[in-house]
Amino acid sequence: MNKSIETMWKQGFISEGELVVPKVNDLYNRKSQNLVDKLQHMFAVNIKAIVIGALLLLVVMSLIGAPWLGIYICILLAPLVLMARQELDKSYNLSKGQSSLEYLESFNAWLHDSITRYAIYYKFFYPLFYVGMVSQGLASDAGTRVMARLLKTYPTDYVFLDIPGYVWALITVLLLVVIKYSAALYRLDLNMIYGRQFKKLEELIKDMRALKPE
């Protein structure tokens, strides 16, 4: 990918007359190249981190007696990894036959479309992850003991699967909160990791647009 990016800029993504001063033209070429390279590198590293993290989580969960939860989480993460790989490939395959400003605009458009697709997936991921964690907690020995203690301390006639009705009510409310704010939670997580680079991309595009001759 580095070679293809370098080739793009050597071939002159921005014509000499597109910006006001040739030196400024060259400066923005290099800034554009570095920023795109950095973002793509960060995306690639993130994919590897998800894979490694999922495998480590599976090992840890198996060691603490919750292998099925580890497998369940790996299954949830598998589509995310495949989606991330496909989205990254799309960024590599963006058309090179355009100016650097047009390329950055295309990259930015791909980025926003990609974020939208991820947000849709996370609307399902976070609730399912929550359900898995709660199910494991309730099914564990510790969870069973806690439920028995709650029933003894706060008895109720509404009991299902040895779990008090008020616990089911709390679990349901929290699930609804997770469902409602899952997309917002994803975007918060995204901004914490990539927010600074996204801002640089927006500012670079804005500056290059301002420098284009009318």
Score class of each variant (00 low, 15 high):
Ile5Gln: 04
Ile5Asp: 04
Ile5His: 03
Glu6Asn: 09
Glu6Arg: 06
Thr7Leu: 13
Gly12Pro: 07
Ile14Ser: 15
Ile14Met: 14
Ser15Asp: 12
Glu16Pro: 02
Gly17Phe: 08
Glu18Tyr: 11
Glu18Lys: 08
Leu19Asp: 00
Asn25Cys: 10
Leu27Val: 03
Tyr28His: 02
Asn29Val: 03
Arg30Gly: 00
Gln33Ser: 12
Asn34Asp: 14
Asn34Leu: 09
His41Arg: 09
Phe43Cys: 11
Ala44Gly: 11
Ala44Pro: 08
Val45Lys: 15
Ile50Phe: 05
Ile50Asp: 05
Gly53Lys: 07
Ala54Glu: 13
Leu57Glu: 07
Leu57Ile: 03
Leu58Pro: 01
Leu58Gly: 11
Val59Leu: 15
Val59His: 01
Ser62Asp: 00
Leu63Arg: 05
Ala66Cys: 04
Pro67Glu: 01
Leu76Lys: 01
Leu76Ile: 01
Leu77Gln: 08
Ala78Leu: 14
Leu80Gly: 01
Leu80Trp: 05
Met83Glu: 08
Met83Tyr: 10
Gln86Leu: 11
Glu87Gln: 11
Lys90Arg: 14
Leu94Pro: 08
Gly97Val: 12
Gly97Gln: 15
Gln98Trp: 05
Gln98Cys: 15
Glu102Arg: 07
Tyr103Lys: 07
Ser106Val: 05
Ser106Thr: 11
Ala109Ser: 05
Ala109His: 12
Leu111Glu: 13
Leu111Cys: 11
Asp113Tyr: 10
Ser114Ala: 14
Ser114Ile: 00
Ile115Glu: 13
Thr116Phe: 13
Ala119His: 09
Ile120Phe: 10
Ile120Gln: 14
Tyr121Phe: 12
Tyr122Leu: 06
Lys123Asp: 07
Lys123Gly: 06
Tyr126Ala: 07
Leu128Arg: 04
Leu128Phe: 14
Val131Leu: 13
Gly132Trp: 02
Gly132Gln: 03
Ser135Val: 02
Gln136Ser: 13
Gln136Phe: 05
Gln136Leu: 08
Leu138Arg: 00
Ser140Gly: 06
Ala142Trp: 12
Gly143Asp: 03
Thr144Gln: 15
Met147Asp: 09
Met147Asn: 09
Arg149Gln: 13
Arg149Cys: 08
Arg149Phe: 13
Arg149Trp: 14
Leu150Gly: 04
Leu150Cys: 08
Phe160Leu: 15
Asp162Trp: 12
Gly165Glu: 06
Gly165Pro: 07
Leu170Trp: 06
Leu174Trp: 04
Val178Ala: 02
Ile179Arg: 05
Lys180Pro: 01
Ser182Gln: 03
Ala184Cys: 02
Ala184Gln: 10
Arg187Glu: 12
Arg187His: 13
Leu188Gly: 14
Leu188Tyr: 14
Met192Ser: 14
Ile193Thr: 10
Tyr194Cys: 03
Tyr194Gln: 02
Gly195Ile: 02
Gln197Cys: 02
Gln197Met: 11
Gln197Asn: 12
Phe198Arg: 04
Glu203Asp: 15
Glu203Leu: 14
Asp207Met: 00
Arg209Ser: 09
Arg209Leu: 06
Lys212Trp: 00
Pro213Trp: 10
